[in-house]
């Protein structure tokens, strides 16, 4: 397990999953790939298939329909897999706490390793969060 984790940290491939977000968090995540921020420096790559992913970036406030999909996808990720909650929505549902269609917060559904607060978090914050994640997991090895 730990060997796998160690290998994973060299070049974490991320899959980005939106569960009823307002899109800002998703765009800021994508922004990290573009020339100004260029998160690929750290070996991170956004992949199109969940089967290739090591890290799951979740944004949004988990609405009823997408939660079912998310659980399915979480089953399919090759383990070990790290989960990052991007934005206030994924952290605590923020303004959507009382919505009839967002019943349960993300961390009651799947285990979350890192929270990146902000609405939306700036790309710098997302990068800092990613680096912290690598440090945190690295220190437990």
């Amino acid at each position: 397990m730990s060997l796998k984790l160690k290998a994973l940290l060299k070049s974490p491939w991320v899959f980005h999953l939106s569960t009823g977000s307002c899109n800002n968090c998703d765009i800021e995540t994508l922004d990290c790939l573009t020339p100004r921020f260029d998160i690929e420096r750290f070996g991170m790559l956004l992949v199109g298939s969940i089967k290739h992913a090591d890290v799951l970036l979740v944004s949004g406030s988990c609405n009823r329909m997408s939660v079912e999909r998310m659980k399915e996808l979480f089953e399919q990720v090759p383990k070990p897999c790290l989960v990052v909650a991007i934005g206030t929505c994924a952290g605590s549902r923020g303004i959507f706490k009382d919505s009839y269609n967002c019943p349960v917060p993300l961390d009651k559904i799947i285990p979350v390793d890192v929270y990146i607060p902000g609405c939306p978090p700036k790309p710098e914050a997302i990068i800092a969060g990613a680096v912290k994640l690598i440090e945190k997991v690295g220190s437990t090895l």
């Binding site: 939106s18 009823g20 977000s21 949004g60 406030s61 609405n63 329909m65 997408s66 999909r69 303004i95 959507f96 009382d98 919505s99 009839y100 269609n101 967002c102």
Partner: peptide
Amino acid sequence: IGYNHRGIEKLSEM
């Protein structure tokens, strides 16, 4: 559709 429905109209009434 419906994967993003968050009941904003209801929330706004609160």
